[in-house]
């Protein structure tokens, strides 16, 4: 686990988030959402500060972070790619699309490419089952993606 240094400004923002939730331990999940919004992910230092601010143990914070799939401790790529593996997408071949992304980017689910450009994740149903299989790159939604179409999607963001 690489140690990161938080800038004074970011640190203050993080503390402000905790203050905005009254340092209530019951608000831990809301605080983590905001913190992930601020940092893009939840590195150990961020969790330590949150633990201190909310007066809970770091182990507890880490236990919560690792319970929910929305929270991540690895920074996302510049273009986070999410492949929907909801049932509708699955029955229309989303698993093959995912395999192709893994192959082309040479990363596994949950990883970020060495150049930091792409990260790959799965999600369950974005509610666009009519477009199945669905892939999201950042906020952009790609529908009816075939394994063949994967390289074109990646190419769009390569440069």
């Amino acid at each position: 686990m690489a140690k990161i240094k938080l800038s004074e400004k970011k640190l203050q923002e993080l503390k402000d988030i905790c203050t905005s939730f009254n340092h209530e331990k019951g608000e831990l999940i809301n605080v983590l959402h905001k913190a992930q919004g601020l940092f893009g992910y939840l590195p150990a230092e961020v969790q330590e500060i949150i633990a201190k601010e909310l007066n809970v143990s770091v182990a507890h914070v880490y236990g919560v972070v690792t319970f929910y799939s929305f929270f991540t401790m690895t920074p996302k790529g510049e273009h986070p790619i999410s492949v929907c593996l909801g049932t509708a997408c699955y029955v229309r071949g989303a698993d093959k699309v995912l395999e192709e992304f893994k192959r082309i980017l040479n990363i596994q689910v949950g990883e970020t490419s060495a150049d930091g450009k792409f990260s790959l994740s799965c999600l369950r149903c974005v509610g666009a089952c009519g477009l199945a299989p669905v892939v999201m790159v950042g906020e952009k939604v790609y529908g009816r993606v075939s394994p063949d179409g994967v390289k074109d999607i990646v190419a769009e963001y390569r440069n």
Partner: peptide
């Protein structure tokens, strides 16, 4: 806010999640 745990559809799990727990 939920944070991506299907089990939180279960009432007691949902309540624990709202309390800031696993």
């Amino acid at each position: 806010y939920g944070a991506g745990a299907f089990v939180c559809g279960e009432e007691t799990a949902l309540i624990h999640s709202m309390e800031g727990l696993r």
